[in-house]
Amino acid sequence: MEYVLLAVIGLCSGIIGALVGLGGGAILVPATLFIGLTLGMIPELTPQKVVGISVVMMIATGLASTLSYMKSKTIDYRSGFIFFIGSVPGTILGAYVNKGIDLPSFNLYFGILLIILAIILLIRDHIKPVQWFVKHGKEQTFIDPKDGKTYVYGYPIWFALLLTFGIGFASGLFGIGGGSMIVPAMIILFLFPPHVAVATSMFMVFLSSIVNSVSHIYFGHVPWLYTIAVIPAAYIGAKIGAALNQKINSNTLVLILRIILLILGIRSIYEGLF
């Protein structure tokens, strides 16, 4: 029964993660912690093992999404590689720090992060884009094939490396893909077109998840039997999510996601404190 539940969680994580560029970990980690530890259905799981499942899953979701976005030609490969380079040392450091976190502390810190992510998603459409980073970085252009609109975006490389180091640390520590943080930054700070931001984010998630997974495998955090149940479902979900991204407006889903992250964050903080 637990394998079926994990597969369903993996499918939903893949769909939502690819659709809005999250990577899926922000859905899988709290959901798996809830059924595994709170409900006691998989008592042998620990926060470290749940993070291990999540980071390996994100290789599948990142790969599936990247293959889909390659066809639509919305990936900025140069930016994806730069963001990946910045995230690698942070990812390794986060995986190392994860070893020493107990369940209450993990719940508390993860809950705070979820609420921060929910707030970012809540305000990202109401924040005026920042022009400074584009002016002080290398400008790039993208012509949206749907409406012919031209976007000009860019960023200073040094700032992108610092930003993605912090995002990589959170990814390694909590098993989230990093897309939930980098996508708003790309749109608000660097003026990326939304579809390019999501596609490039999933490309970076794919690359960084490989490093993240190797780190957690080295530290013995990956329960392979449970992970194998998640991977194919997450891969299928990511293909579905990437296809939907090209066809629908994701505002409704993002609104639902904000509410879910707030609820999960509050519950996680409560469990961490009490």
Rank of each mutant, 00 (worst) to 15 (best):
I16N: 00
V20S: 07
G23A: 08
I27M: 13
L28G: 01
L28I: 11
V29F: 05
L33I: 10
L33F: 14
T38R: 08
L39T: 11
P43L: 07
T46E: 14
P47K: 00
G52T: 06
V56G: 01
L63N: 01
L63C: 03
A64C: 02
S68Q: 11
S68E: 09
D76C: 02
R78L: 08
S79E: 10
S79L: 12
F83G: 01
T91Y: 03
I92R: 05
L93H: 13
G94F: 01
N98Q: 15
I101R: 10
I101C: 09
F106A: 04
F106L: 11
F106E: 06
L108W: 09
L113D: 03
L114Q: 11
L114Y: 03
L114G: 01
I116E: 01
L117Y: 05
L117D: 06
A118K: 10
I120D: 15
I123D: 06
I127T: 14
K128P: 02
Q131M: 13
W132Q: 12
V134A: 03
K135C: 05
K135Y: 08
G137R: 07
K138C: 09
K138M: 14
Q140V: 05
T141P: 10
T141C: 13
K146I: 13
K149W: 08
K149D: 11
Y153M: 02
G154M: 02
P156C: 01
F159M: 13
F159A: 14
L163F: 14
T164G: 09
F169C: 11
S171R: 09
S171M: 10
S171I: 05
G172I: 01
L173A: 05
G179F: 02
M181W: 08
P184K: 02
P184H: 03
I187E: 07
P193H: 02
A197D: 06
S201Q: 07
V205P: 00
S209T: 04
S209D: 01
H216G: 01
G220D: 02
H221A: 15
H221W: 07
P223C: 15
P223A: 15
L225E: 15
Y226M: 09
I228E: 07
V230L: 12
V230Q: 10
V230R: 09
I231R: 01
Y235M: 06
K239E: 07
K239C: 09
G241W: 00
L244T: 11
N245A: 15
K247Q: 14
K247S: 05
N249P: 07
L253K: 07
I256A: 14
I256H: 12
I259C: 12
I260L: 15
I263N: 06
L264M: 15
R267M: 14
I269Q: 07
G272L: 08
G272N: 13
F274S: 13
F274N: 14
F274I: 14
